[in-house]
């Protein structure tokens, strides 16, 4: 009994602790100075001092959010299109397009995008968007093509139009799988967004790069840790939402 209690409480407790730690760190980094001080040399600052960590964290999240939303819309729309009778012939084409987005190194995307759209957030958004497409598209495709056949047939048999079947049956039933793709995409983007700072995007990469340039291990570590904590928490949260929708859609057995 007691063990089961600990098992169910411990993860939530750890999560809560991580949230508290993260919020405390980005709002009051000064508190943690003694911890990071031993990592610095020559009396260099232990806490990033060229901008607010909180602002950078929020900007980092904003960049990831915008890129993921755009990638979700495009990937899901594409998956819907190629699973309709009229669009099946585009399935191979769209697959390869999305795959190209994935095989292209993000640094190369940045390098190519900068001349076209200039420095700053834009090239980063383009890279993250292209990177986010594949997992969402693949999952949406899996979701939409593995629906229980007689449920879809029942929807047709009840007299739903194509649009009604899509919105009332197919998308809700695929939602858990699509969410899985979004989760993967977000986590990839959270990490990839750091390299955006090489082209002057305001992300947590700035902290890491500043650390590398000034040989300040404390900077590198704090930038990396914030990104890691965000990734863990968001991954966790999205997994929970996913499990909840899967239960609601009666697809938990799969």
């Amino acid at each position: 009994m007691k063990e089961a209690g600990i098992k169910t409480w411990l993860p939530s407790l750890l999560r809560l602790a991580l949230v508290v730690l993260l919020v405390a760190f980005v709002t009051n980094p000064g508190w943690f100075e003694p911890l990071l001080k031993p990592l610095t040399e020559n009396n260099a600052p232990a806490i990033y001092n060229q901008g607010s960590l909180l602002t950078l964290t929020l900007l980092h999240l904003r960049t990831v959010l915008i890129a993921t939303v755009a990638a979700t819309i495009v990937a899901v729309a594409l998956a819907i299109l190629v699973t309709r009778p009229a669009g099946v012939e585009f399935l191979p084409l769209s697959r390869s397009l999305v795959n190209i987005g994935q095989t292209f190194p993000p640094v190369a995307v940045l390098a190519l995008a900068v001349p076209a759209v200039g420095f700053g957030e834009k090239p980063t958004l383009i890279a993250l968007f292209l990177y986010g497409l594949l997992p969402i598209f693949e999952n949406a495709l899996t979701g939409l093509t593995t629906l229980p056949a007689n449920v879809v047939e029942a929807a047709r048999g009840a007299g739903m139009t194509g649009w009604q079947r899509l919105t009332k049956v197919e998308l809700p039933l695929s939602a858990p799988i699509i969410l899985g793709g979004i989760r993967l995409s977000v986590v990839i983007s959270l990490a990839t967004a750091t390299i955006g700072s090489t082209v002057a995007a305001k992300t947590l990469g700035e902290v890491i790069i500043a650390g590398l340039l000034s040989n300040n291990l404390a900077f590198v570590l704090q930038g990396g840790l914030i990104v890691a904590a965000l990734a863990v928490l968001i991954y966790d949260g999205l997994s929970a939402i996913e499990r909840y929708t899967a239960r609601r859609m009666g697809r938990e057995a799969e």
Binding site: P148, N150, G159, V169, R251
Partner: peptide, 16 residues
Amino acid sequence: RRSIGYAIQGHGLFPH
């Protein structure tokens, strides 16, 4: 199909 009742083989209820 809206005007015709259809009980599909194996019920086919909407799980959600």
